[in-house]
Amino acid sequence: MNVVEINHLTKYYGKKRGIIDVNFNVEEKEIFGFIGPNGAGKSTTLRTILGLIYPTGGSAKIFGKDSIQYGPEIKKQIGYLPSEVFYYDKMRVKDLLKYAASFYQKDCRKRIRELAEIMDLDLDKRIDDLSFGNKKKVGIVQGLLHEPKLIILDEPTGGLDPLMQQKFFELLQEENKRGATILLSSHILGEVQRLCDRVAIIKEGKIVELQRISSLQERAYKKIKIQVPEDLDSNYFQIDGVSNVEVKQNIISFMYKGNVNAIMKKISEIKIVNIWIEEPDLEEIFLHYYERGA
């Protein structure tokens, strides 16, 4: 079942491009990443799904229902964390969370206490006394306190220190195990790589690629570096799929794309001292998409 279905979603701000013909689905219990640089249209997409802005064309369905027509009903099951969190400054954290909880017909007190404990958040402080990172924590608790079935996060980790980021990811993974579907946008690829099952890459308002994280990495290049005992003919590795060969004394490095067995066979035929095979990170894959159109 698809929790989110986006069909030909288009948004123009006057004549300015927001997003053009965006299509993707997020399956139930999936962690879906939405990546692209700033200004590519990530927030526009998420805000349209949430009914904060209205589409110029196309539509989005959440839990099988139109996101605009059934907005309030759908939102009972959505938790949202905006990229920049702002709350009523003069309120105390406790009162703000109580206000947030009052929109849902359930008792959220226990969950608020649990979440505050996990995120190490002081409930008695006033919002305007909080640091940026602590405000973000309020945002996290606020977004999760009603145990939503769909969690939408826009650039979730900005402002959190690495330790908190770790705790937050664990929290999201727990929510996911509990059955929550997660849709998150990011321009930090590491976090997408760590969390997501599938990603959509967005560029200048259009989706350029929709892939499983695993196949994205599989299909991509491997970085291979080999140390050999004696000088080797640099042409030895000239087979299909090898590129960027570099020889530095007795270390050869190159990029390889293709059947791993072929290259392994080639390597096994020579004497080697050491070998490094690295997966390219998403950043490198990503750069590739961006350079292609540039």
Binding site: L52, G71, P72, E73, F86, Y87, D89, A100, F103, Y104
Partner: peptide
Amino acid sequence: REKTADFLLTKPVTRSK
């Protein structure tokens, strides 16, 4: 102005309410 619209409008309420 106080940037709280995101908070309020992502809650399960209609704008007219």
